[in-house]
Amino acid sequence: MRRAGRIFLVAFMFAIAAIFLAPVALMAFTSFKPESEVLNPASAIPKVWTLSNYLHILGWVEEAPFGRWLLNSFFVSTSVTVLVVGISSMAAYGITRLKAPGGNAFLGVVVASMMIPAQLFLVPLYLMLSKFHWLDTPLALIVPATAGGWGVFMLSQFMRAVPEAIEEAAIIDGCSTGEVFFNVTLPLCAPSMATLGVFTFIGSWNDFLGPLVFMDSVRNYTLPVGIALYQTSYYTEYGLTLATSVMATLPLILVFLAFQRQIVESMASTGLKD
């Protein structure tokens, strides 16, 4: 009976996941259709398979230097992820474990700051980045991204959910705070850090407005900006847009799968879980 229940659960979860996946599959299929067939609801799977959308995009370096953009994207998103995960885990450790005086109140301010619509920051940020001479350099996309409160808030809450007993034991054993942070807390919180890493990477990767507004040269754009090239204010070149978005999302899927393995392995190595 229990076994049957388990099997039912797995089947049920897969069915739900399939529903979530269906639109994505449709998007992928559509990117292989010729433009004239694109929005035809009667053929979810292409009647005519074509690579023309992909060839068009890749074949026009002047319009869309995809190789360069891919490099930019990886550089910016990896940098942002490393910085955000590093800075946020340090800050969360300071607040929840070292109990920095006023740390919780500070966290409150950070969370409150997230409640102000960020659209308003665009102009001050632009002027500031201009003063720093960071416009049209990757710094404009990397450094301001480290100021987001999301990561600190998330890791703080996750650390609170992990019992302090193990760290206390380490301190009694004579470890310094730095050693505890690196050797005990970080491994314990690896799953949440990996999760934060994935979210940060995706967020940075998909940022649209940042590259468009802060970059002046097309060669300094990031990959997702390419998607916007095929959408005009009046109509969308559906085939090209969907093909670009498939190409822009594939690296993300690879990153996610890699991180997912990382999560599993780190849990196995701590020996505490599954």
Partner: peptide
């Protein structure tokens, strides 16, 4: 893989890129 190592690898990747 231990988190320090992976962090190190990521930073390396970053500089490399």
């Amino acid at each position: 893989m231990n988190p320090r190592l992976s962090l190190g690898l990521l930073i390396g990747l970053c500089v490399g890129l």
